[in-house]
Amino acid sequence: MGAWLNRLAGQDIDPPTDISDTVMRWPPTPARVLASAERHAYKSLAQALALEHPKGFLLAQLPLHRVVRVPRKHSYREWLSRTGLLTADFALCDEHGYVRAVVLMPVPDDQPRQQIKRERLLRVLAATDLPVALWERDWHGDDIGKLRAAVFPKPRGAGYYSDTPQAH
C-alpha cells in the first residue's frame, strides 16, 4: 500500500534521462589501445631506448602537435587545422621529455587518404631533423643493437651524455 501511495504522490518517479546524453545511450567500454604488432614494437623499442636514454620514456600514439613545435609568427590555429589529426605511433623521449626519435608503423594496405596523411606526417617530421624509423609490422627480430642503430642513427662520440637539458 505504501508503494502505491508513493507512486500516486510522485515520490518514486525516476528523473527523465536526457536524450542527448551519449553516455547513457552508448555506454563506453575499454578499448584495446595497442594491437599485437604494436605491443611487440613497444617492448622492443623500450629496450632500445633503455640502452640509449636510460632514464627516458616511450610514448605511444602521440598527436603530432605534442611532438613538434612551430614558430609562433604564423597562425598556430591554421597549422593545427592542417596537422591536428596526425599522430606518431611511437615517440622516444629523454628524461626531460624532449623527443629524440619517432617510430612509425605504416599499414601496407592503407587507404589513399591515410597514405596522404602519412606522407604529410613524414614531411613535417623530416623538417624537424628528428630520426624517423619505419617499423615493419611483421618484423619480429630480437637484435636490439640493430634496432637501436635504426632508431638512433647518429653515432655518438666519447663522453657524450644525452640526458641533459642542453642536449636539444
Rank of each mutant, 00 (worst) to 15 (best):
Gln61Val: 04
Pro131Gly: 10
Leu121Ser: 12
His74Val: 03
Pro131Asp: 13
Trp79Asn: 00
Leu49Thr: 01
Arg100Tyr: 11
Trp79Tyr: 09
Lys73Cys: 06
Lys43Ile: 02
Gly84Pro: 14
Leu58Phe: 09
Asp110Pro: 01
Ser44Asp: 05
Pro108Glu: 03
Leu59Phe: 08
Val132Pro: 14
Ser44Ala: 14
Gly56Leu: 02
Phe90Pro: 00
Leu80Cys: 02
Val103Asp: 00
Val70Pro: 05
Leu125Arg: 15
Pro106Cys: 07
Trp79Gln: 01
Val103Pro: 00
Val68Arg: 00
Leu125Ala: 14
Lys73Trp: 13
Leu130Ile: 07
Leu121Lys: 04
Asp89Ile: 01
Cys93Gly: 06
Ile116Arg: 12
Arg82Trp: 14
Ala88Lys: 03
Lys55His: 11
Pro106Tyr: 04
His65Pro: 02
Thr83Asn: 15
Gln61Gly: 09
Arg100Ile: 04
Gln111Val: 04
Leu49Tyr: 01
Gly97Phe: 11
Met105Ala: 09
Met105Val: 09
Ala48Asp: 03
Gln111Asp: 14
Pro108Lys: 03
Glu119Tyr: 10
Lys55Pro: 04
Glu52His: 15
Tyr42Gly: 01
Gln61Glu: 08
Leu85Thr: 15
Asp110Ala: 13
Glu78Ala: 11
Leu104Phe: 09
Ser75Phe: 10
Val107Ala: 07
Asp110Ser: 11
Thr128Ala: 15
Ala48Phe: 03
Gly56Thr: 08
Thr83Asp: 14
Gln111Cys: 07
Ser81Pro: 02
Cys93Ser: 08
Glu95Trp: 04
Pro71Leu: 05
Gly97Glu: 11
Leu59Cys: 06
Val124Pro: 02
Glu95Asn: 09
Leu122His: 07
Ala46Ser: 13
Arg100Gln: 10
Glu119Lys: 05
Val107Met: 04
Phe90His: 00
Trp79Leu: 01
Gln111His: 09
Arg123Cys: 15
Asp109Gly: 01
Phe90Asp: 00
Leu80Gly: 00
Val99Ala: 05
Leu59Glu: 09
Lys73Arg: 12
Leu130Tyr: 13
Asp110Trp: 03
Tyr76Met: 11
Arg113His: 13
Ala88Trp: 07
Tyr76Thr: 04
Arg123His: 13
Arg118Ile: 13
Asp109Pro: 01
Val102Lys: 15
Leu51Glu: 14
Gln115Val: 11
Leu92Ser: 02
Phe57Met: 01
Val68Gly: 00
Gly56Asn: 04
